[in-house]
Nucleic acid binder design. Sequence first.
DNA 1: AGGTAGAGTGTTACATGTAGAACCCAAGAA
DNA 2: TTCTTGGGTTCTACATGTAACACTCTACCT
Lengths: 217, 217
Amino acid sequence: MQPIASARVVDVVRDQLRSAILAGELAPGSRLSVPELARQLGVSRSPVREAVLLLVGEGLAVEQSRRGVEVARLELSDVLELYELRITLESLAAHHAAERMTQTDLAALRGVLDAQGAAAVGDARSFRELDMRFHEIVSQTCGNTRLARHAALLAREMRLAGPLMVNEPWHLRRSHEEHRTIERALRQRDGPAAENAMRDHLSRVCQSVRHHHNSTL
Amino acid sequence: MQPIASARVVDVVRDQLRSAILAGELAPGSRLSVPELARQLGVSRSPVREAVLLLVGEGLAVEQSRRGVEVARLELSDVLELYELRITLESLAAHHAAERMTQTDLAALRGVLDAQGAAAVGDARSFRELDMRFHEIVSQTCGNTRLARHAALLAREMRLAGPLMVNEPWHLRRSHEEHRTIERALRQRDGPAAENAMRDHLSRVCQSVRHHHNSTL
DNA sequence: AGGTAGAGTGTTACATGTAGAACCCAAGAA
DNA sequence: TTCTTGGGTTCTACATGTAACACTCTACCT
């Protein structure tokens, strides 16, 4: 029996808005009009306003003074900032995760990777979803709740950078191989190896994004 | 001419509540009743409610489902979590700051350290304040806005740990010396040295907190 | 005594009211 | 034609209303 979580309207609205933003239905730059969203969702403005505020706190939206809130727009520089932070935080998380992951966690991780191996052939959309899940599992099992929370925030924020990401199949396959390397280190409970593998992985992806951007200018 | 920032009620309330919490006027565990605070501050409940939500987002308060919000209580384990994150984030920030600080920044830093040297003789309260400022300057000048933001959040959250901190004069003096070492590296634009000095400093303080806690049990 | 029902108080969470500001667009002045 | 001006619309930010819920304390029953 898990405690019946709060079925608060504000939570539902927040989750819906977040999903819509991350799915691209609310594109970066879209204005988030509280009355409009309240009408569409069939609730009053109060919970919508709070939900929008929470999204601002998560970095998924930004408020311009007196002109409302819009979905955050990420430049290349923002993505590089995010990668730099993810590199440090997630490699630290991987180190600890190697020493703390349960068999259940490892099984879940392998399941995600198997599914990702299948998606790597061409389904970039579900590949990204599974990539997210992979990193989330590692961060969540590191034992430091704040580290997990901040890493999750950064990973989510990065998903706003859709068009800047590299989606070529060979790139997805390479990412997947690196995930396998990380998973191997985690399974062997080799903290330093997991840390290095995670750092190498994210660093390489960051470099790819940078070069991809330069070459598609 | 700087843009006349939003004189929004919610911002004023948030700042006041934050100050009150960090100053200990609202002790950890205190309930933050929205109607009560609204009465005391002479404003309506809406901006107070939003301000309280923002503080939850900053980690300074926690909400129990359906039972309102209270000022966060930090255990030793929370402080250790925070230090681990600060160690990685702030040492990274120090590395970059070494390469980017302007003469103005360095002058400000030195000013803070001079004042701190005077406070180290026994005024733990202002010493902590200046310590905060020192770390803030380094983080803010690292060039990565998100890194700066997250580091600031962590440093603030840590101030809730008042009684767990070590306030012996010899400890303050040692911290001050380490600050000087960091500042020297920054002034010489030696990124790796600044990074190591910052890591050593925060690691040592973290160890002191741990030992202090064990010995005062 | 020990447990419980129930009134009374205070709060949260959501709904709604509204002044003032920002934006849009069309009509008129230079 | 370009700039300004004024009306109309929409929004934000704050204020207020209220149902449902949680806590407290007392009085009652066993």
